[in-house]
Design a protein around this nucleic acid. Sequence first.
DNA 1: ATTATATGTCAAGGATGCTGACGTAATTGC
DNA 2: GCAATTACGTCAGCATCCTTGACATATAAT
Lengths: 175, 175
Amino acid sequence: MVEAAQVTGIGDRGHEVGPPELRRAIELLFFAYRDFTGEADQLLERYGFGRAHHRVIYFVGRHPGVSVSGLLDILKITKQGLSPVLSQLVRDGFVIARPDRADRRRRRLFLTEEAQALERVLTARQSARLAAAFAEAGPDAASGFTQVLEAIIAPEVRHRVALAFPDPMEGSPRP
Amino acid sequence: MVEAAQVTGIGDRGHEVGPPELRRAIELLFFAYRDFTGEADQLLERYGFGRAHHRVIYFVGRHPGVSVSGLLDILKITKQGLSPVLSQLVRDGFVIARPDRADRRRRRLFLTEEAQALERVLTARQSARLAAAFAEAGPDAASGFTQVLEAIIAPEVRHRVALAFPDPMEGSPRP
DNA sequence: ATTATATGTCAAGGATGCTGACGTAATTGC
DNA sequence: GCAATTACGTCAGCATCCTTGACATATAAT
């Protein structure tokens, strides 16, 4: 096939393997995600933060009082991987960790006001980009977009995603 | 606000910052992309490859005869970043680089048969996951999904995405 | 009292990038 | 023909983010 590609050469589309619309969707997801996540980096740099810090700030902001292990469950990384990032955020005054009253082994994490302000700006930027895309594609497309994303997510992970309307149980201590 | 979060404590949703559906979409994109890309990793490990190798295999497969700089343009990384990955793929017999006939400074990249087979399996896995999500969400949602992804992508990058139908100009030498 | 849990830390390493500098071969422009 | 440019490679150094493994400490549960 390599020889064939060289012989037929120019204009060869490579081996066709599946429905073009699926192949196209795979690529769209790659490019879209890359462009989308690149949005916030410039602002984070000013604070000496990277993507990992962004994720922590975001999810602690969404789940105030989450425990360290709860955060690890969401992020699906190891505590050794989280450690330097979380330490820096605490050291720099962006995250506050206080022991849970009922179980003092657990540290509940909260954003400081400065971190909340940063998170608002970061989320606002990404929201603006999404809103522009939704406006361009139309409300039905926007609805389909979230439906498909939800279907892509592994069933056991879906419950972690924020609900469209506030979750009354959010932040409650584990049994 | 941190104190407020601790006082109101349990059940607090954190600071509400924007439309819930946009916040929800941001999270969906995060979880969906993570689950989606994790799909192929297990298979790649058997070859001693990572995501970077996957990207090279994928795009060389989609653009047979692409030059090194062409690949760098697609991936948006530096040649120093690509170098170890591409070298390993050539060394392991997954990518063949031959000088362009008209301009022998340029190396045109092709996949070997083994690499094509691997790429087919990898893409088939991801296609299957996408197809399942499309089936679950319905054809209209699938259409909206790709429309929104395309709208998210920066305009100057959109032309890089595969077309739904083969591009007759693909692989042609630069003027 | 023993065991289990939540967390932290030290060590070592891998994957994937970056910038900067330099070199070589080939092509292009004058 | 010669200089500048282009395509590519490589070496050095560094950063980010993540891993596994081992061990320590405090608290809670039994």
